[in-house]
Simulated scan of single mutants.
Amino acid sequence: MSLSLLSLRSFSSLPTGQVLGGFHVGAASPPAVAWPLQHLPTPVLDGGEALRECWLLPDGAPVLTGEHEGVVWRRSGDLLFGVIDVPEAGVVPEPGRSALQQAAFDIYARIFQLLDAQGLPHLWRLWNYMADINGEADGLERYRQFNIGRGDAFEAGARSVVGRVPAACALGVASGPLTVAFLAGPTPIVPVENPRQVSAFLYPDRYGPRSPTFSRAALVHPPGQEILFVSGTASIVGHETVHPGDVRAQTVESLDNIAAVLAQASLKSRSGPFALGDLGYRAYVRHPADLATVREVVAQRLGDAPVTYVLADVCRSDLLVEIEGQCVR
């Protein structure tokens, strides 16, 4: 069963087919749809009113839609897409946990319960967004609180926190709930790491009590297909931020890192090598004034590859841009 990712001007303009799930990025409220939809309430920076994307199945593909403890999900065959939003204001944390840490734990625990119930245990890709990601509360940066909750849930759900972990991003927006979207399937990912970087799940303690739980990229194999997910990628070499304050150099470094990941993915690919121009991208930009510089560098390196620019805060306060991508074959 083939799966494709489409960008649309409007969900009403969907071609014939069945939607597995999708995304609505923009300040305006999304339309009501019959499938799981993640809303990221932040501006699209490159002139569009909103970014609308959906994972599309072939026409006539059977689908099953449901809800599990706040996780809205849809399944077709062995593919599962889901979305869950948890407002922190309604979370009652257990002793020793912040509200965000508890929300992250609860979200991932519910996702793992759903995957086990559906017999699709393997997470392939995750999209995580939260308010005030670099803010400090309870003596710890909020992104680090999120990592603790996420990592604890992986362990509680009998999932590995190193090695074969899904591709992911984690970005900050001005307001809104902790929202997580995911794509899962029956087979484990083929993890891809970057030789220029320390694996995120092996970061030293200086970046928080618990390392982030994601691979730099993941290859997955729905029947008859290969999909490459490149996680959110920034200006990090080894484990340290490089070029602080220089958005041009950070954008170059981010793309250098993606190129290094693609070289590694090409060695593991069933479908042939990957080039920078083969992917579609989202670029998250911290400051709107930096958009022109980021676009100039991206155009030089990626050519005509589709890129959508989104206002968002990156997980470290000294990072100005983050870029993610995917390629469906």
Rank of each mutant, 00 (worst) to 15 (best):
121 P>Y: 15
42 T>G: 02
256 D>K: 06
259 A>F: 08
50 A>H: 15
208 G>R: 02
154 F>R: 02
41 P>Q: 04
102 Q>L: 03
162 V>T: 15
302 L>N: 03
14 L>M: 13
251 T>F: 09
94 E>Q: 13
41 P>L: 11
112 F>S: 05
19 V>Q: 12
62 P>V: 04
94 E>K: 08
83 V>Y: 00
7 S>E: 15
324 E>P: 04
72 V>G: 04
161 V>H: 04
20 L>S: 05
214 F>R: 04
160 S>P: 09
18 Q>F: 03
2 S>D: 14
93 P>D: 14
195 P>R: 08
46 D>F: 10
178 L>C: 03
320 L>E: 05
173 V>Y: 00
232 G>N: 10
113 Q>R: 14
255 L>I: 13
205 D>F: 13
198 V>M: 15
213 T>S: 07
48 G>A: 07
35 W>Y: 15
210 R>Q: 13
177 P>C: 12
311 L>S: 02
129 Y>D: 05
246 D>F: 13
93 P>M: 11
100 L>N: 01
95 P>I: 11
323 I>G: 01
177 P>Q: 05
217 A>L: 01
131 A>L: 00
288 P>M: 10
242 V>C: 08
323 I>S: 02
103 A>H: 06
320 L>K: 02
150 R>Q: 10
255 L>V: 13
210 R>D: 07
266 S>L: 12
192 V>Y: 01
18 Q>N: 10
106 D>T: 13
237 V>Y: 05
274 F>R: 05
5 L>S: 07
52 R>C: 08
96 G>H: 06
151 G>L: 06
168 A>L: 04
214 F>H: 09
299 A>N: 10
149 G>Y: 02
287 H>G: 03
172 G>N: 06
156 A>Y: 00
174 A>Y: 02
291 L>A: 11
43 P>L: 03
324 E>M: 08
306 P>F: 05
329 R>I: 07
285 V>A: 05
3 L>K: 05
70 G>A: 10
144 R>M: 10
162 V>N: 06
115 L>S: 07
143 Y>E: 06
185 G>V: 01
80 L>R: 06
324 E>D: 13
177 P>R: 03
184 A>F: 03
279 L>C: 07
133 I>W: 00
289 A>H: 12
264 Q>M: 14
102 Q>I: 01
175 S>R: 11
64 L>V: 14
78 D>K: 13
151 G>P: 01
254 S>V: 04
218 A>G: 14
257 N>I: 08
314 V>S: 00
212 P>S: 14
